[in-house]
């Protein structure tokens, strides 16, 4: 994945180097601007078995800030925010590859450097008895849960950095 581009960022930002599960690296630019969850909407995506995006709905496009063309064919980790602990995604992948649904709170990174919080559910899609893809549907989290997870993830990140 390409590094994030200062030209796309709105407002002040900090720079972070993320190392992904496959060993690749990318520079992400992060601002403190939160985009509120769109009322009444679901943010929907589908990936192949490797976590590469194959379908996104309009709310996904609106919230991520990338075009649909930029998203399809790209790893879902294009949205990974440096404040998210690795443990959350390790748990996600462990759960869904075991054929089970996963649910959790996720802080996602937008193309413009801002972020948005979601309550995400990921399920394996079973066709003729085989898992062929994964679907994720996100909904609006409560403020209380967002605050709780902000603190929890900060603690987990600190432990992971040690």
């Amino acid at each position: 994945m390409q590094d994030m581009c200062p030209r796309d960022i709105v407002g002040d930002y900090t720079e972070h180097r993320l190392r992904y599960f496959d060993g690749s690296q990318r520079t992400v630019l992060v601002s403190e601007t939160e985009t509120p969850y769109p009322e009444g909407r679901l943010i929907v995506s589908r990936t192949d078995l490797d976590g590469v995006l194959t379908h996104v709905n309009q709310s996904f496009v609106d919230m991520a800030g990338y075009t649909k063309q930029e998203l399809i064919g790209t790893p879902h980790s294009i949205l990974r925010h440096p404040d998210m602990p690795r443990a959350a995604f390790a748990d996600l992948w462990q759960t869904v590859t075991a054929g089970k649904p996963w649910q959790g709170y996720v802080k996602n990174l937008r193309k413009d450097g801002g972020y948005y919080w979601v309550l995400a559910t990921v399920i394996p899609n079973v066709r003729q008895g085989r898992v062929v893809s994964y679907t994720s549907v996100r909904r609006k989290p409560s403020r209380g849960k967002v605050e709780e997870h902000t603190a929890l993830y900060r603690k987990l990140r600190m432990e992971e950095d040690q």
Binding site: L42, R46, P101, T121, V122, I123, N125, T135, S136, V137
Partner: peptide, 14 residues
């Protein structure tokens, strides 16, 4: 319809 069912499935998990 499979897609709609997958979506409904994610919503029924709590």
């Amino acid at each position: 319809s499979e897609f709609m069912i997958d979506l409904m499935d994610t919503l029924m998990i709590d």
